[in-house]
């Protein structure tokens, strides 16, 4: 009675259907309680699996893994800072400490940098946290940190891309923002506003995370009003 097969239901749950097909499945589901139940079952399965493994990504990293990275960072040539960093003392210092892999401890102190490391997880702090909390892409003037896209990630929750001294993507976790990716940003001011080489990588991260399309200005404002919940 319906031409909606299991693969289509699953693709809907996985955010893989184009708009036209998605509407077709939605309509079929609305007319067919059995189909709706199967869809709900697939949604629950995805949520349950994602929820089951999610806490692992929040745990402190094992010392052996950190040690491996720090050791490796010490013996390989350091990335030379580029002129883009000039005048960005805070960002530069953060970048340098990350590049050298030595600053893990120092970053955790919450001393002014945009990104702190808490239990092995990068979290936004200071100005970056504030920009993610409050700044709207539709009204940011010449703010030091610019918000790019605001979107729902697969599996739920808000994420925002940002650019400034550091560029990347952060997703809402509890009351804070977990930084999914941090790359050297395009900085601020006209001299440095050219597209940064990070753009493509930030977009790739957005593509990987995003469920559907980014929200517009109204959606962004509404999400902020709800405290990003």
């Amino acid at each position: 009675m319906t031409d909606i097969d299991e693969a289509m239901l699953i693709a809907l749950v996985d955010g893989e259907l184009d708009e036209v097909t998605r509407r077709r499945v939605d309509r079929a589901v609305a007319d067919d309680p059995a189909l709706a139940e199967r869809l709900a079952m697939h949604r629950r399965l995805r949520e349950r699996l994602a929820g089951h493994y999610a806490p692992i990504a929040q745990e402190p990293l094992p010392d052996a893994m950190r040690a491996l990275l720090e050791e490796s960072a010490k013996v390989t040539p350091l990335v030379r800072s580029t002129p883009r960093w000039r005048g960005w003392a805070v960002g530069g210092a953060i970048a340098a400490s990350l590049v050298m892999g030595l600053g893990l401890g120092r970053l955790t102190g919450g001393e002014g940098g945009p990104i702190g490391l808490h239990d092995g997880v990068m979290v936004a702090q200071g100005d970056l946290a504030q920009a993610l909390d409050t700044q709207l892409a539709s009204a940011q003037g010449d703010a030091a940190i610019r918000i790019g896209l605001t979107f729902q990630r697969k599996g739920g929750g808000w994420c925002r891309s940002f650019d400034g001294a550091v560029a990347g993507v952060a997703c809402r976790e509890g009351e804070g923002w977990q930084v999914q990716q941090a790359l050297p940003g395009a900085g601020q001011g006209s001299a440095y506003r050219q597209a940064s080489s990070s753009d493509a990588r930030v977009m790739a991260t957005v593509d990987a995370l995003i469920d559907g399309a980014p929200v517009d200005a109204a959606g962004e404002g509404a999400a902020r009003a709800k405290g990003w919940r």
Partner: peptide, 21 residues
């Protein structure tokens, strides 16, 4: 930015993937 730093940023997810396998 260094290779190690990029790795550090994705390491929590890599660890989760390893656990799920």
């Amino acid at each position: 930015m260094s290779f190690e730093h990029d790795l550090l940023a994705i390491l929590p997810r890599l660890r989760r993937f390893a656990a799920s396998l």
